[in-house]
C-alpha cells in the first residue's frame, strides 16, 4: 500500500512535463500574424479592383466629368441623380428590366422545378438526364446569344423554318417590338432553367423518405403530400436559387448586347444596357457613374436579402 502511493502522486507531474511550457500566448500571437498574412493579400486585391473603382465612380457621380472631353471635373452634387431618377427614359428601362427579370425568373423557376420533380421521381437514368439538362447552363452567354440569334433569324432561322413546315406564319423574332423582349426572356430561360433544376433537385433528394412513408400510411393524397411535405422542405433552397437568378438577371448585359443590342428601338434595353450606352456611346461618365451607383444599391439590397436567407438556411 505505502509503496504504490508515490507512483500515483508522481503521474500528474510527468504528464505536465511532457507538454511544452506555456505555448498559449506566443502561439496565439503567431496565429494572428499568420491569419493576417494569409487574408490581407486577397483583401487588398479586392480593395484595389472592386472597392476603389466603386469609390471613384461614387466621386464621379457627383461631377460632370466626361471621359472623352477630359479636362477637370466640376462638382454638380446631386444633379446627376435627380436627372436619372426623374428621367422618363430611365423609367422605361426600369420597367423593361422588371418585366425581363420577373418574366425570366418566374418561367425558369416553374420549368426548372417541374423538371427536377419529374427527374426525382425516376429510378433509372437520373444521372444521365441531369447531366444532359445541365448543358445550356455551362455555355458562355456569347455562344448562347449568337446561336439563338441564328436560330431566331427571320430568313434562315430554324425556328421559322419549323413554323413554316407546320403551316404557320413567319415571325420576325428579334426585330419586332413585341417579340424581341419575349425572345430575350425565352433565351435566358433556356439557359438558366437548368440552374433552378439543379438546386431544386438537390433539395428534393434531401427530403427524408420516412416522411413520405408516414404520409402514405395515413393515406394522404399525392397533392397533399406535395403541398405539406415536398414544397415546405424544398422552398428555402429554391428561394436562394430564385434570388440568385434575380440578381444575375438584373445585372445581365452580354445576352442583350449579342441578341438584340437593345433594339428594335429601345424595346429590349435593360438598365445595364442603358448604362453602357450612356457611358460608352454618350460618354457622359458622370451621369453613367451615378446611374451605376444606383444600380449597385439595388444589387446590394438584393444581395443582403440573398445572404440573409442563406444564413437562415445554414442555421437550420
Amino acid at each position: 500500500m505505502s509503496e504504490s502511493a508515490p507512483l500515483t502522486i508522481d503521474q500528474p507531474g510527468q504528464v505536465a512535463s511532457a507538454t511544452p511550457p506555456a505555448p498559449g500566448r506566443s502561439r496565439r500571437l503567431s496565429d494572428r500574424w499568420l491569419a493576417g498574412a494569409f487574408i490581407s493579400p486577397a483583401l487588398l486585391l479586392l480593395l484595389a479592383m472592386s472597392v476603389f473603382p466603386l469609390l471613384w465612380a461614387l466621386y464621379l457621380s457627383f461631377t460632370d466629368y466626361s471621359a472623352t472631353r477630359g479636362g477637370p471635373a466640376h462638382f454638380v452634387w446631386f444633379e446627376n441623380y435627380t436627372a436619372i431618377l426623374t428621367s422618363a427614359q430611365v423609367h422605361l428601362r426600369a420597367l423593361t428590366t422588371l418585366i425581363y427579370v420577373v418574366g425570366a425568373v418566374a418561367l425558369q423557376t416553374v420549368l426548372g422545378f417541374s423538371i427536377a420533380y419529374l427527374i426525382s421521381r425516376r429510378t433509372h437514368g437520373r444521372g444521365v438526364l441531369t447531366t444532359l439538362f445541365l448543358v445550356p447552363m455551362m455555355l458562355s452567354p456569347v455562344v448562347v446569344g449568337l446561336f439563338w440569334r441564328f436560330m431566331l433569324d427571320a430568313q434562315f432561322g430554324v425556328i421559322n423554318s419549323m413554323l413554316g413546315s407546320l403551316g404557320l406564319g413567319q415571325v420576325e423574332w428579334l426585330t419586332q417590338q413585341g417579340t424581341a423582349l419575349l425572345s430575350l426572356i425565352v433565351v435566358d430561360t433556356w439557359q438558366w432553367t437548368p440552374f433552378i433544376m439543379l438546386i431544386a433537385l438537390a433539395g428534393l433528394t434531401a427530403v427524408p423518405k420516412y416522411l413520405y412513408e408516414a404520409a402514405s400510411i395515413d393515406r394522404a393524397s399525392e397533392w397533399f403530400r406535395f403541398r405539406t411535405i415536398t414544397l415546405p422542405l424544398v422552398w428555402p433552397l429554391l428561394l436562394i436559387a430564385v434570388l440568385f437568378r434575380a440578381i444575375e438577371a438584373f445585372r445581365l448585359f452580354d445576352l442583350v448586347y449579342i441578341l438584340t443590342s437593345g433594339g428594335p428601338g429601345v424595346s429590349t434595353e435593360t438598365l445595364s444596357f442603358h448604362v453602357y450606352k450612356v457611358a460608352f456611346l454618350g460618354f457622359n461618365t458622370g451621369t453613367a457613374s451615378a446611374y451605376g451607383i444606383l444600380m449597385v444599391l439595388v444589387v446590394l439590397v438584393l444581395t443582403q436579402l440573398y445572404l440573409r436567407y442563406l444564413n437562415k438556411l445554414k442555421e437550420d
Binding site: L46, F52, L54, R251, V275, A279, T285, V299, L300, T303
Partner: peptide
C-alpha cells in the same frame, strides 16, 4: 459577406471606373 458581394457587382458598372483606372 463583403467578399461575396463584390462578386455580385454589375460588370457594366464596375467597368466604367476600371476603364478610367
Amino acid at each position: 459577406f463583403f467578399i461575396l458581394s463584390t462578386r455580385f457587382m454589375p460588370p457594366v458598372v464596375v467597368v466604367i471606373p476600371i476603364f478610367l483606372m
